[in-house]
Design a protein around this nucleic acid. Sequence first.
DNA 1: TCAAAAGTGTTGTCCGTACACCCATGA
DNA 2: TCATGGGTGTACGGACAACACTTTTGA
Lengths: 232, 232
Amino acid sequence: MNPILPQFESVFSIDCLIFGFDEGELKILLIERNEEPFKDLWALPGYLVGNDEGISHAAERILYELTGLRDIFMDQFYVFGEVDRHPQGRVVTVAYYALIRINGIKDLKPVTSFAKSASWYNINNLPEILAFDHRSIFDKGFEKIKQKISYEPIAFELLPEKFSLTQLQNLYEVILNKKLDKRNFRKKMLNYGILKELDEKEKGVSYRAAKLYRFDRRKYAKLFKNELTFGK
Amino acid sequence: MNPILPQFESVFSIDCLIFGFDEGELKILLIERNEEPFKDLWALPGYLVGNDEGISHAAERILYELTGLRDIFMDQFYVFGEVDRHPQGRVVTVAYYALIRINGIKDLKPVTSFAKSASWYNINNLPEILAFDHRSIFDKGFEKIKQKISYEPIAFELLPEKFSLTQLQNLYEVILNKKLDKRNFRKKMLNYGILKELDEKEKGVSYRAAKLYRFDRRKYAKLFKNELTFGK
DNA sequence: TCAAAAGTGTTGTCCGTACACCCATGA
DNA sequence: TCATGGGTGTACGGACAACACTTTTGA
């Protein structure tokens, strides 16, 4: 199959950091392993990649099988390739993060044979030990998201289509891990001109209902990405 | 050797974008292939990685063998893993960039059997066709560098230990591909307080000699990385 | 003395920040 | 009517952008 240099054969895999935002909490999706090594421990969803599958395709497939979602914002962020990271042999893994709207998911299907269940964990309350080097993968990926949210409009991938400014601000606060000033936050966001105000309001709340907004991709595309900084 | 799932065996490699700055030009190092596929074409320096070698180690090794340099600023920036990117089989490649001081190199040694020569190319004047998907790798990597130079002090990795402000500004201009205002650039750079003014001046120039500076890593470390933006 | 690049300040504008109160709503 | 979060404006300071002339040096 590989006419090049057969003595250099390695296994590689994809691992996915799947972020979701729900009820003011930022969460990631973990699976509970049903196989050695690290049986019964929680791990990032991932899978070995076959010879005949592109890595981005593999990442999308894993996400789809687990959540039923397609066309999701996702990107690779790092490769973990130390020799001893997998106890059973050399496995290089390409780490991806994905940002999804939790409320768009009907149910989780941990279809891989490796997993007995899947569940959302608040990022501040992860299991103490994760399988393999998945804790380092999480740390590195979360760091990337933190940086990215300051200059790209990725927050909108995590929110429902229609959201209030308070929701948006909460998300920034959770990711950046600091309080932001309400007035300044709103002024800045609205000034960008990338939010479309809707004729709709929150429903079912026992206080003054907030206006809802939608992210306006067309207007955003007109601006140079690098000219904006979010959430400072 | 690999007890996991032998049907999933793949080959992976490292490819390096090695940047250097010399006489006002930003350059990368290419090798001329001496083997099929793509014999006689220019390519990024790279190599297959063995089962028993970590990927970061492999990247450092390749750079050392080619340039004789160690302890170089380098980082991975993307994985190219499409199935058909290598005509002879599935090869996933991890792309690294490295920033080096050209004038610290005695001579290039294209020690790999794949290469018959190595040479520096101005990034605006690369060979029209590069081997494999190396043109895409270059494009992606150069984009990263561009972004990175705006919020991390990577420019100093490309300059000699002692440099003038004009040299520094030229480097920013070449990477960002735009003219910067001399007074504003100097004011901003000096304000950061991360440059140490030396008691030395340029030599051998037929005009007023410029003061030389050194990057002060200690002072830089005291500031939060993310608080600075360079070259805007 | 000429050519070539070094070096130097001021002003206006915009953006970020700090800060506190009234409003609308449902229970 | 109360509790809860929604929604709003102003004033200050710092950073960025625009802009042109004098100085130094070696040839």
